[in-house]
Nucleic acid binder design. Structure first.
Lengths: 205, 205
DNA sequence: GTCTATAATTTGATAGAC
DNA sequence: GTCTATCAAATTATAGAC
């Protein structure tokens, strides 16, 4: 309980270092030496706290997976019209991925490389139910004609795509457009408004 | 010249095997043993044809980068209205990434891990110019009021995002929605129409 | 708990026969 | 060109002192 507040135990330092290195280099690319240095300790201690590289990775992976899945619950409970809910979500989610730009690509890559790892975690949780409730809200608003009708699943995929993909492909965009990182970040911040408006226009009846 | 037609030279077999393994496991995760087995030869031959793992990887990487960048030239030359051009592009590009579902994630991951690799290839090529011409066409159509005004850069990012991201995150979607691969593929094929319509609705004046 | 030293294993690369 | 055998380097994992 109190553990969560003690931020500089050796275990915490290792976890932070491992998070940094794994997210940046992936499971295969990460080196235990680098993690140990980053944590200011030595390799042997990694094995003392976590049995193996694989075990340490799983710890990080499990911790991260919860953070990436958007928290729809807040917007679902509110009584605002669906366009406002979506706009709120877009702002919140783009802010989140902008602050953790490497996280989506890390998760998608590692899940792709080992899908089983995720199935164990997500199977039969409440995520599916929350998504269904959000979809149901959309359908209701479509039926009363407040927004244009779309397949709710695809609409949700569209929203997530618009928020996440440009962050994932930052280095590609940067190379093609030949921009420095600061300028590119400004453009990606503009997306909060641009994406909101794009979706709003698509949904207008 | 005739080389391109000889499909089962050892060199070709190696390249195909390397392509398969690198795209699936990345530079760090790929093993020369696996590539050699896949090609039906042995490790030593890999070094005979390509000096090192790195060199072999670069060969694959350079070959793939060209394929992923969309060929805008065809649509740019045509005289159709912009909505039709975009719709044509969406269909073509979703078809392409559906047939090569692992390619976008591979490229984005590797570029992220080593941005320099791409800069050398893309710097000062014609990609930038073609993109500018496409943007210019959009602006023209916006000015005459045929489509709603958007920032052309963001509009292009939106289109690419909608086409690519759901393919990239297939395993994630599959886990959350608990679908088998066949059903998910059907959904992803539907996107050709769904995405086209979504963009069309957003752009309607 | 933390370290140094070292073992064990993996894996990219090379030597040399055919 | 292709193979077997082997090396050398990198990297994960462990033993044992403090």
């Amino acid at each position: 309980m109190a553990e969560a507040l003690e931020l500089s135990t050796t275990e915490q330092k290792i976890l932070e270092a491992a998070k940094k290195v794994f997210i940046q280099k992936g499971l295969d690319g990460a080196r235990l030496d680098e993690i140990a240095n980053e944590a200011g300790i030595n390799k042997a201690l990694l094995h003392y706290y976590f049995k193996s590289k694989e075990k340490l990775f799983e710890k990080i992976f499990d911790e991260m997976i919860g953070k990436l899945l958007p928290d729809f619950s807040a917007i679902i409970e509110s009584q605002n019209p669906i366009e406002e809910k979506i706009e709120f979500f877009v702002h919140k989610y783009i802010d989140f991925v902008s602050e953790n730009p490497q996280l989506p690509l890390f998760m998608v890559t590692e899940i792709n490389r080992n899908p089983q790892r995720m199935k164990d975690l997500l199977g039969h949780t409440q995520n599916f139910i929350i998504l269904q409730r959000f979809a149901f809200q959309m359908i209701t608003e479509m039926q009363v004609g407040r927004i244009k009708s779309f397949n709710p699943l695809h609409l949700m995929l569209n929203i997530m795509s618009l928020c996440i993909f440009p962050i994932i492909s930052k280095p590609v965009i940067q190379a093609i457009l030949q921009l420095n990182e600061a300028d590119l970040n400004i453009i990606l911040q503009q997306r909060k408004e641009e994406v909101s408006r794009f979706i709003r226009e698509a949904l207008r009846p």
